[in-house]
Design a protein around this nucleic acid. Sequence first.
DNA 1: GAATATTCGGATATTTTAGTCTTAATATAA
DNA 2: TTATATTAAGACTAAAATATCCGAATATTC
Lengths: 144, 144
Amino acid sequence: MSLIFSRQCEYALQAVLYLALKPHNEMTSIKELTRRLDIPYHFLAKILQDLTRKGLLSSLKGPTGGFALGMPAKDITLFHIVEAIDGVDFMHSCVMGFPECTGKNPCAVHEKWAGLRDGIYTMLVSKNIAEMAKNMRKPEYQSA
Amino acid sequence: MSLIFSRQCEYALQAVLYLALKPHNEMTSIKELTRRLDIPYHFLAKILQDLTRKGLLSSLKGPTGGFALGMPAKDITLFHIVEAIDGVDFMHSCVMGFPECTGKNPCAVHEKWAGLRDGIYTMLVSKNIAEMAKNMRKPEYQSA
DNA sequence: GAATATTCGGATATTTTAGTCTTAATATAA
DNA sequence: TTATATTAAGACTAAAATATCCGAATATTC
Ligand code: FES
Ligand code: FES
């Protein structure tokens, strides 16, 4: 089970952060991304196409083609990516699965969860993806 | 998309908390639970059987049969339920989907996430289900 | 003992998510 | 202009999660 974010969304986060380490306007192919990040080729292709349609990435066909960020890295946060792929329902959903999540009729853990959820939001928006990418200590991202 | 916990697990949490409000050794039928909590009958039946096999609930067949807690409410936490249904992988998984989640090769949000994850754990273990159930302000649980 | 109300167990069905394949479009370079 | 390397798009398949169905077992009540 993936937690909070769908598999698609996890892959999107990984891929966009990888692109954020690349020099501006350098195109990166799906092939390179899947090789480095170990993501199924065609699945990632779909995800990148999706992100491109939504403006987060730009793409170019042909040799020397590939994908790059669709806007300056400093204007993109992880939240934008999550928003594009999974949507933001998690920001106002009950962690116990009840249909409503409000302070009006809170479930047993609503107060705690509301705080944690804010923490998750902060985690996703506090830094842009350029800063985020620099903080990756994963071997997949070394000398990208 | 359900968040963190599977749908099954959400239903389990809701149902066990409902049982925690009942007098000791009073049996509650699936029928009552599904009516009050709006959970698909046969699906809930499966989940309760599962929890019974794992000792969290006890069951009795026949008229006046049903389900009840398998041990004192004060000895059960939400974490026990999550553990029984979804398992505890979420406690040591990377929120960005990387294969490893350690301080050794942290992803960009590892520190933040590790803290939030502890918060989730605390949320699940800080009170037993008797106290939890009393804090439910959902109409489904009134005069249970 | 018969009728009834429940859980039990396993098979099946449906829906969603994940992943694959194939063909077309396009850009580059020889 | 031709060969090639890429993305684009959509159909397809596979797997997992969710949900349903049915017959058997069992306990209660009459
Ligand atoms: S009502 Fe459950 S988390 Fe808000
Ligand atoms: S490595 Fe990503 S959350 Fe721990």
